[in-house]
Computed example of a mutant assay.
Amino acid sequence: MIKFFQNLFGKEEVQVASLSVLGVDMHSHILPGIDDGAATVEQSLELVRGMQELGYRKLIMTPHIMSDFYRNTPEIIRMQLKVLQDAVTAEGIDMELACAAEHYLDEALLQKLEDNEELLTFGDNYLLFETSFLNEPLNLREAIFRMQSLGYKPVLAHPERYTYFYGKFNDLVSLREQGVLLQPNLNSLTGYYSPGAKMIIEKLIDAGLVDFLGSDAHSLKHIANLQKVLCSKYLVKALELPLLNSKL
Rank of each mutant, 00 (worst) to 15 (best):
residue 2 I to M: 13
residue 9 F to L: 15
residue 10 G to R: 11
residue 10 G to P: 01
residue 10 G to E: 08
residue 11 K to G: 10
residue 18 S to V: 08
residue 27 H to E: 09
residue 31 L to S: 04
residue 33 G to M: 07
residue 33 G to N: 08
residue 36 D to T: 13
residue 43 Q to F: 05
residue 44 S to C: 03
residue 53 E to K: 15
residue 57 R to D: 09
residue 63 P to W: 06
residue 71 R to H: 14
residue 80 Q to Y: 10
residue 81 L to G: 02
residue 81 L to T: 09
residue 88 V to S: 03
residue 96 E to C: 10
residue 98 A to N: 09
residue 101 A to N: 04
residue 106 D to K: 09
residue 110 L to G: 04
residue 111 Q to A: 13
residue 112 K to E: 12
residue 114 E to W: 01
residue 119 L to C: 08
residue 121 T to Q: 02
residue 126 Y to L: 10
residue 130 E to V: 02
residue 132 S to W: 03
residue 133 F to H: 12
residue 133 F to G: 02
residue 134 L to P: 03
residue 139 N to E: 12
residue 140 L to Y: 07
residue 144 I to V: 15
residue 146 R to C: 00
residue 148 Q to D: 06
residue 149 S to E: 12
residue 161 R to Y: 05
residue 169 F to E: 10
residue 178 Q to I: 00
residue 179 G to K: 00
residue 184 P to A: 01
residue 184 P to R: 07
residue 185 N to T: 15
residue 186 L to K: 01
residue 189 L to D: 06
residue 195 P to G: 03
residue 199 M to C: 07
residue 202 E to Y: 04
residue 207 A to D: 11
residue 215 S to Q: 00
residue 217 A to S: 14
residue 218 H to G: 07
residue 226 L to C: 07
residue 235 L to E: 10
residue 238 A to T: 00
residue 242 P to F: 07
residue 245 N to H: 08
